[in-house]
Lab assay of single mutants.
Amino acid sequence: HAATELTPEQAAALKPYDRIVITGRFNAIGDAVSAVSRRADEEGAASFYVVDTSEFGNSGNWRVVADVYKA
Score class of each variant (00 low, 15 high):
Asp52Gln: 13
Ala3Cys: 08
Glu55Gly: 06
Arg19Val: 04
Val68Asp: 02
Asp18His: 11
Asp31Val: 06
Thr23Ala: 05
Gly60Asn: 05
Ser34Leu: 15
Val50Trp: 02
Phe26Tyr: 07
Ala35Pro: 01
Asp41Ala: 15
Ser47Leu: 08
Leu14Val: 05
Val64Glu: 02
Asp41Tyr: 15
Ala11Leu: 02
Pro8Thr: 14
Ile20Trp: 10
Ala13Glu: 11
Asp18Phe: 09
Val64Trp: 01
Ala2Lys: 14
Ile20Lys: 00
Arg25Lys: 12
Tyr69Leu: 01
Arg39Ile: 12
Trp62Gly: 00
Glu9Thr: 09
Ala3His: 02
Trp62Cys: 12
Phe56Thr: 08
Tyr49Leu: 07
Arg25Phe: 13
Phe26Ala: 00
Ala11Ile: 03
Gly24Arg: 00
Val51His: 02
Tyr49Arg: 05
Ser54Ala: 13
Lys15Ile: 14
Val68Ser: 01
Val68Asn: 00
Ala40Ser: 02
Ser37Leu: 09
Arg38Glu: 09
Thr7Trp: 03
Thr23Val: 14
Glu43Asn: 09
Pro16Val: 03
Ser54Trp: 11
Gly30Asn: 10
Val33Gln: 05
Leu14Ala: 07
Tyr49His: 07
Phe48His: 02
Asp52Lys: 09
Pro8Ala: 15
Ser59Trp: 05
Trp62Asn: 01
Ala66Pro: 00
Phe26Glu: 00
Arg63Lys: 10
Thr4Ile: 14
Leu6Glu: 02
Arg38Lys: 13
Tyr69Asp: 00
Arg25Asn: 08
Ile20Gly: 00
Ser34Arg: 14
Asp18Lys: 15
Leu14Phe: 09
Asp52Cys: 15
Val36Gly: 00
Val36Met: 14
Glu5Cys: 11
Val68Phe: 15
Lys70Phe: 11
Val50Gly: 01
Asp18Arg: 13
Val68Gln: 01
Gly44Ile: 04
Val33Asp: 01
Ser34Asn: 13
Asp52Trp: 11
Pro16His: 03
Thr4Val: 14
Val64Pro: 00
Ala11Gln: 03
Ala11Ser: 05
Ser59Lys: 08
Ile29Gly: 04
Val33Met: 13
Ile20Leu: 07
Glu42Val: 07
Phe56Gly: 06
Ser34Val: 13
Thr53Glu: 04
Ala32Tyr: 05
Asp52Ala: 12
Arg39Asn: 03
Asp52His: 13
Ala46Glu: 12
Arg38Ile: 14
Arg63Cys: 12
Ala32Ser: 03
Arg39Tyr: 10
Trp62Arg: 01
Ala13Gln: 13
Gly24Pro: 00
Gly24Leu: 06
Arg19Thr: 06
Glu43Met: 15
Tyr17Val: 02
Lys15Cys: 14
Ala28Arg: 11
Ala28Asn: 15
Ala12Gln: 09
Glu55Arg: 10
Val65Cys: 05
Asp31His: 06
